[in-house]
Amino acid sequence: MTTLRKPWLAPLLSVLLLAFLLGVWQLAAQPETTVVDPGLDPEYAALIGAAAAGGGQSAMPTPGEVGGKLWAHLTDPFYDRGTNDKGLGIQIGYSLARVLAGYLIAVALAVPLGFLIGMSPLAYRALDPYIQVLKPISPLAWMPLALYTIKDSGTSAVFVIFICSVWPILVNTAFGVASVRRDWLNVARTLEVSPLRTAFTVILPAAAPTILTGMRISIGIAWLVIVAAEMLVGGTGIGYFVWNEWNNLSIANIIVAILVIGVVGMALDTMLARLARAVSYRE
C-alpha cells in the first residue's frame, strides 16, 4: 500500500489542507478598507458591531488575530481578574471538574446496576420501562427541575452531566453482562467459584470491553452537554466563557474556546480509547 510506504503523506496532506483553509479564512476576513456604505442602516450597524459596520474592520477576526489570542491564553491560562474575566485554564478546569464529578457518580451507579440488570432477567424486565422512557430525554430538560430542587447551579450542572452519562453506561453494562459466554460461567461453576469471585474474575473482564464502549460514549456526551449546561447556569466554566465572549462580541475568543473544547474533548476520548484497548481481548 502506498500509504504504508510513504508514512509522511497523510500528515503532509493534513498540513496542506490546514494551510488552505487558513488562507481562505484570511482572505474572507480581510478588512475592507475601500468601501464605506453611506446608506447603512444604523440599527443594523448597531447589531453587528460598529467597527464591522463601518467597514474599517471585519467582526470576523483573521487567523493571525485568533492565533495571537490563542497564544495569549496559552501563555497565561490561570489569571483571575474578577468574575467575568478568568483565564481559559481556570474555566476549562471548572468544566472538567463538573464533568468528572457527574461522570464518576454515573459510573459508580450505572456499572453495579447494569450488572444487576444483566444478571437477573427479573430486574431487567422490571427496570426496562424506566430506562426506555428516561433514556431519550434531553439532559438539559432536567435543568430547571435540578435548579429548583438542588438550588445550587454548580451542583445542578453536575446532576445534568450525571443524568446524561448514566444511560449509555447502564445499557452497555447490562448488555455486556448478559452476553457473557455461557461456557465461561460454566467453567466457574464446575470450579466452585463463588458468585462474587465469578462477578469480578469472569463477568467483569468478559464484559469490560462493552462497559468501556458505554463509558466512552458517555464521556463524549458529557463533554457536549457541559458547554450547553454552563451557558444556562452561568458563573464559571468553558460554556459560560463562550457565552460571555459572545456578549462581549469577541469572536476571536470564541474561536479560541471552540478550539480548546475540541482538543479537550479529543483528549478525553483518547484516554477512554486507551483504557478500552487495555481491557479488550481477542477470542
Binding site: R181, D183, W184, N186, V187, T190, V202, P205, A206, A208, V279, Y281, R282, E283
Partner: peptide, 14 residues
C-alpha cells in the same frame, strides 16, 4: 471433584 474439558475449550481469552 469432577474436572470438565469442554467441547469448545472454554478458555478465558483475557
Amino acid at each position: 471433584d469432577r474436572g470438565v474439558v469442554f467441547q469448545s475449550h472454554a478458555l478465558m481469552p483475557w
